[in-house]
């Protein structure tokens, strides 16, 4: 029986191009029915891994199994894996209907069945009235939905999305990413979503897989990765954390008995209102040397007497500070987390 925990299993994947190793001994599992994000900066190898899973890049060492079947050496058209490209790759010579019907026609499904499946799909993506349009006459968001429908209509075992939102404006991005999450939950499709945007990854994923330079840095839920980064790279990439060494903590009066290593302090944990009970809290005093209004929040950079610059993020409420103010913020010492 197939264990749903390793519905997709990639083991010891190694990929090199022209002698450069792009993916180094990468292994991970993906659970059935979940949405997993591959998160990492450009050049971290996310898309390369995705293409290997899809079978578009067959020059690699390692093994890939999907739903208990070894697919390592299967051609792309035999894997039952859908993929959404960054460019959407809609067929410009075909209408919306014909684009979505493409895969069903290749499978030589009966006409009535194709008509029904595509019509249903058009209703799901809300483009019933655009069925006879050509891709050139659609907006970016509509094209995106057609691309998703074209893959989903074949009910793939796995749907891969390669930075599918990067060409859209900020508002459409948020709308579409919520829609993708909804499709995923309603249809129960296992999805892998590649992105370099931390917020996007955390907002929609059940699981996040962080990559850097072809290696897996950490895999876990968004909360786990955000609050407990395992490596310095993750700590640095995932949020706007303060990263301090044990000696810095001691200088700031945040504990002297910490073992050597790097520690993170999340800026939103620094409170500028004095807690009712100071038990377990430590104050940090400093001068506001930089501030950025982020909308609902304000980020302050405080320069302490010891010369450290500490970032604090506060809700944008009535009590706001200005540059050069001497302020005091409070931190629950137990919230200081060691990296690793």
């Amino acid at each position: 029986m197939v264990n749903t925990d390793n519905f997709l299993s990639v083991s010891h994947l190694n990929i090199s191009f022209n002698g450069n190793t792009v993916i180094k001994d990468l292994s991970f599992n993906i659970k059935k029915g979940t949405l997993t994000s591959f998160l990492g900066p450009s050049g971290s190898g996310k898309t390369t891994v995705l293409r290997a899973i899809a079978g578009l890049n067959q020059a690699f060492a390692g093994q890939i199994t999907l739903d208990g079947q070894d697919i390592t050496n299967l051609a792309p058209n035999q894997r039952n894996i859908g993929m959404i490209f960054q460019s959407y790759a809609l067929f410009p010579n075909l209408t919306v209907f014909d684009n979505i019907a493409y895969g069903l026609r290749v499978q030589k499904k009966p006409k009535t069945e194709i008509e029904k499946a595509v019509t249903d799909m058009l209703a799901i993506i809300g483009l019933t009235d655009r069925r006879d349009y050509y891709p050139a006459n659609l907006s970016g968001g509509q094209r995106q939905r057609v691309a998703i429908a074209r893959s989903m209509v074949l009910e793939p075992k796995l749907l891969l999305l390669d930075e599918p939102l990067s060409a859209l404006d900020a508002k459409t991005r948020v709308e579409l990413r919520n829609q993708i999450k909804r499709y995923q939950q309603e249809l129960g499709i296992t999805m892998i979503f590649v992105t370099h945007d931390q917020t996007e990854a955390m907002a929609i994923s059940d699981d996040v897989l962080i990559m850097s330079l072809g290696e897996l840095e950490q895999q876990g839920s968004a909360m786990e990765i955000y609050t407990n980064p395992k490596t310095m790279f993750v700590a640095d990439f995932i949020g706007n954390h303060n990263v301090l060494a044990a000696t810095d903590l001691a200088m700031l009066g945040l504990g002297t008995d910490q073992p050597d290593g790097q520690y993170i302090i999340r800026p939103e944990l620094l409170e500028h209102v004095m807690p009712a009970n100071l038990n377990g809290y430590a104050p940090i005093e400093g001068q506001v040397v930089e501030m950025a209004v982020l909308g609902n929040r304000i980020e302050y950079s405080l320069k302490t007497a010891t010369g450290h610059v500490v970032k604090a993020e506060c809700m944008n409420q009535n009590i706001n500070f200005t540059l050069n103010d001497e302020i005091k913020v409070y931190l629950k010492v137990a919230e200081i987390k060691k990296v690793g």
Partner: peptide
């Protein structure tokens, strides 16, 4: 102009063979 590589690969992911993808997707465009 068009992303022919993406279109060619997409057609294969949708179940088409290389030759089929070339005839049905690349040639018409």
């Amino acid at each position: 102009g068009d992303d022919f590589r993406g279109m060619f690969e997409q057609a294969q992911l949708l179940g088409d063979s290389k030759v089929g993808a070339f005839i049905r997707v690349v040639l018409p465009n």
